[in-house]
């Protein structure tokens, strides 16, 4: 092997490497722009949260005042919490501290970061489990219904999903409590926590997850069924049927890939509803999650805590929406 040959190979490899580098740099740049846009969206959302709490009657100092506290004490605490300053000064202060991981101090003097450290993973666990169950059940039901359009399964799924969609989480929760806990005694009615603040066993998750997923399964099953019906009318799906492929293959290989964008978008919007529903469900089952923290914080007009919760859930929702957009871009990009 002569040196000249090695040099030649390197010379040939150099432009290829340079173009690969340029491509990857461009990809990084594009990703950066997308992420910056999402971060900006989150900042706007937090500004709205600050403004909304400002509009509520009362403030944290009066909401958390001890019985028999004098007006002067309350005013002193208001000054201590910085609540005497206008909201347009407090918001930038809070926002500039956010990138360092400092979510501020609650009205009761605790660090918000510590306050959320235990409940946030619990809510993530609840939400992620509910999301996975929702997606799996909605796909299964939607596909089952789409296999025989107009058949018994289709009509049952259509009818049941309509009802499930209309049920609020607390109605489902109460129904589950009655059946699974009070009548049969299979599951405990309230969540017991382990010493580290997480649920004591997985059985504690069953009822909250079910209460969250039932309405969302109804919603998503309808979206899956509708997207598959649209795809079934596409010429290439009709052609696949005329090629004598099995109904299952036509559904999974030809109709479902085209339905992904609609399904992903529907499921991503469910994330918001799952996390919103978690507030109700966690309160009902006494589950140690963000919902419990949030309902307490709203009663206290505790702006940093509420904004901290919104920052966490907002980041999760943005991330899921971003994933849905990626699925969409990938499916549509595969066309040419």
């Amino acid at each position: 092997m002569s040196e000249a040959a090695i040099e030649g190979a390197e010379a040939a490899a150099a432009p290829a490497a340079a173009s690969a580098l340029r491509r990857s740099l461009r990809a990084v740049g594009r990703t950066g722009v997308v992420l910056a846009k999402r971060a900006l969206m989150l900042a706007v959302l937090l500004a709205v949260v600050f403004a909304a709490i400002e509009l509520l009657p009362g403030d944290a100092a009066s909401a958390t005042s001890e019985r028999g506290e004098s007006a002067a004490d309350t005013a002193a605490r208001r000054r201590l919490l910085g609540l005497d300053r206008p909201v347009w000064e407090r918001f930038p202060d809070w926002m500039t501290a956010l990138p360092t991981g400092d979510l501020g101090t609650s009205a009761r003097g605790e660090h918000v970061t510590d306050l959320l450290a235990a409940p946030f993973p619990n809510t993530l666990l609840l939400g992620a489990t509910a999301f996975a169950v929702t997606l799996a059940a909605a796909l299964a039901l939607g596909c089952w219904a789409a296999l025989r359009p107009g058949g018994t399964a289709d009509r049952i799924v259509g009818f049941a999903s309509g009802i499930a969609l209309a049920l609020p989480e607390f109605v489902v929760s109460i129904g589950l409590l009655l059946v699974l806990s009070l009548w049969t005694g299979w599951l405990p009615a309230v969540t017991l926590t382990a010493p580290d603040g997480s649920p004591a066993s997985w059985t504690m998750l069953v009822m909250p997850v079910l209460a969250l997923t039932v309405p969302q399964i109804g919603w998503n099953a309808r979206i899956v069924r509708g997207a598959l019906a649209d795809q079934a009318a596409a010429p290439h799906v009709a052609a696949a049927r005329l090629d004598g492929l099995s109904p299952r293959r036509v559904l999974l290989r030809h109709a479902l890939p085209g339905a992904w964008p609609a399904i992903a978008t529907g499921a991503a919007t469910s994330t918001g509803m799952l996390l919103g529903g978690a507030v109700v469900v966690e309160t009902l089952f006494n589950y140690p999650g963000l919902g419990t923290v949030l309902s307490g914080a709203v009663a206290d007009r505790d702006t940093p805590v509420i904004a901290g919760v919104v920052a966490c859930t907002g980041a999760v929702i943005s991330l899921v929406l971003l994933c849905a957009d990626l699925v969409r871009a990938r499916t549509l990009g595969a066309r040419p």
Binding site: H236, L242, G244, H254
Partner: peptide, 24 residues
Amino acid sequence: LRHLRRHRVAYVGQDPGSALDPRM
């Protein structure tokens, strides 16, 4: 009928551009 279409009779439509799965 499906078996017949799958193995013994093949049909190619007028507009193959839209009859081929765009994602395959």
